[in-house]
Design a protein around this nucleic acid. Structure first.
Lengths: 351, 351
DNA sequence: CTGAAAGCGCTTACAG
DNA sequence: CTGAAAGCGCTTACAG
């Protein structure tokens, strides 16, 4: 059989149907595949002109390395996991958008993993997710991010992670983004103080979560600084749901001694306050001022539109993902995101 | 060097730190790795007792095949992509939950890919996503699912897909889930007719989308069957946003000749109607009945709570993902999901 | 700065 | 029904 029809000489260029591989690039460029590999991985051990020649070729051929093959050799995939236990759809979607902002053109993809932190096996579920997929890293979203058992498991398996948490968590590794909830609540309190409110109430999320504690302390503390104590009877612990907001509002708005303003731990519960007030003929904001937290789509759609504390959710997601795909995995400075008040139509000075 | 300390004899059991591989299982079970591979892939060409023995061993060791290695050999990953261009967060999250219901314990994971169908390069973006990740399949969510160019690109690259679409799309391949929007709108119309409404109005989504057309025709057609024509002046095309709902409602509610009821193509626009009505002192439902579409969280949180058409979003996502991971890739019967009306407090007979 | 060999953990194609 | 060889497209470990 004549040697000239050897497969090697036929495959001088990759076929249109099949994608080019590292071998094609190496052969076409006249270098070893190891050199191509070095270029893919941004190794400094490549001469500049070699790098440029090969990179031009890769662009021309439209070559991108196969993440499956790279993952197998690296023993680590190019997938970022997002682990969350949060009922607020807009928050989750914003966080996903933010993460994808950072991941775009990076070769990494985002794999979603909602879970139920109250179910006993959930940590094992995350462990299997992380280990089977050989995840490059995971983003821990509130409230799952507050679970130290989850973080310990991740540290034990050696999986890198970033946590999105309020102030008050151990920051020795630096891989966290701190959401200054206290500041957001304080800004809401300042605003109400400025309007002249003195008799205010608070509907908080479950105080088992640090974020709920931070928001409560931020609000109550700001009034305390002005010498105004918010009495215990004006603070109701609810569960971040609409229904729990309704129940809390019913208590607060029952008697004659109503507060002139209510600050809610999220917009869902604020919507519950709206419902109770509307039903009772209590006019917002004339008879009652209301402030929410989250600045969810709900806030602008309620009537009157709801003043609320906006979180930088998309930015937060972007920062968290950026941390995970940094080439070096050393300690990082702790990142901070600050909430701020969006003033709409739900507050005015007390009557 | 004595032969007894050979690596092979030391590695009789996989180490605690390292996960077992197909080689460990094969050696421990006394079969070839090819036989283990057949068992992983549910090949019928394995004797029953061999299969049971090996499966027991895999459970005992806690073995799961590496999706990276399998993907490399198969030339296809174990990832399902979700491609969407939809602003409604709850809809997207529900669809993700549904897909994950189907993917749980299957070895597949869900990779999200939001995109902007109005940007010129978006189809190339999806193509790169699909090809680089060697996706097992993609779910096409409305409204991206209506884009024939997208579907054509996918067919060309050989990537399997499922589309979630209204009635009216080519179903030769069967890989679609039909969301009978027309029926949902008809049910809303029937309900208003039963309450006695005759002078009704309609705020639709962009009629460039088949789903908006279906909802419009379902509503108008049901009135037509009763001999009632909905005049063109009572039909306003908006863009599914809150703001566009506000603008449409302002037109419809301006003069003295107001309709007694308004059906909206989604809840966002219905919230816009609420805002305009509230501001104008038009009482819902006394002076005006309103129906939305989506049954989003907003519906229950508005006051009065909004009657709305519920879509089986989570079921839809589950069915779409189930289709994609079926072992056979042949033609399938077209799946159907039916919307239904959730009656709340926003409608009553006309004054 | 560059490369040849071996390996990551699976499957395909072939043989029996 | 079972298996030995080669290969998927990369990287690691070593050598130069």
């Amino acid at each position: 059989m004549p040697a000239r029809s050897s497969p090697a000489s036929q495959a001088a260029r990759p076929t249109a149907g099949k994608a080019a591989t590292i071998n094609d690039i190496a052969r076409l460029a006249g270098v070893s595949k190891k050199t191509v590999s070095r270029i893919i991985n941004n190794s400094p051990l490549v001469r500049k002109d070699t790098r440029e020649k090969v990179e031009a070729l890769m662009r021309e051929v439209g070559y991108t390395p196969d993440p499956l093959a790279r993952g197998l050799a690296f023993r680590r995939s190019f997938l970022i996991g997002m682990v969350y236990d949060n009922p607020t759809a807009q928050y989750i979607v914003d966080m996903q958008y933010g993460a994808l902002d950072a991941l775009r053109e990076s070769g990494f993809e985002l794999v979603v993993h909602p879970c139920d932190t109250r179910s006993p096996g959930y940590i094992d579920g995350v462990r299997r997710f992380v280990q089977q997929q050989k995840l490059h890293g995971v983003m821990l979203i509130p409230r799952a991010s507050e679970d130290q058992n989850l973080v310990d498991m991740l540290a034990e398996t050696g999986c890198r992670y970033t946590r999105i948490v309020p102030v008050g968590f151990d920051d020795r590794d630096g891989r966290m983004i701190v959401t200054h909830d206290r500041d957001g609540a304080a800004e809401a309190a300042d605003y109400l103080l400025t309007l002249g409110h003195r008799d205010v109430a608070l509907i908080t999320g479950p105080l088992a979560y640090r974020s709920a504690i931070e928001r409560t302390e931020g609000f109550v503390g700001t009034f305390a600084k002005r010498g105004i104590e918010v009495p215990k009877s004006r603070i109701i612990e609810a569960s971040y749901t609409f229904e729990s907001g309704v129940a809390a509002a019913e208590k607060l708005l029952a008697g004659k001694q109503r507060p002139t303003a209510i600050f809610c731990g999220n917009d869902e519960m604020a919507a519950g306050v709206y419902k109770v007030a509307m039903r009772a003929g209590i006019s917002i904001p004339r008879d009652l001022s209301v402030i929410g937290y989250d600045d969810s789509p709900l806030a602008a759609r309620l009537w009157p539109s709801l003043t609320s504390v906006r979180r930088q959710t998309r930015d937060t997601g972007r920062i968290a993902a950026t941390m995970l795909i940094r080439p070096d995995n050393g300690p990082l400075p702790v990142a901070s995101v600050r909430p701020h008040l969006i003033v709409r139509d739900s507050c005015q000075p007390p009557a």
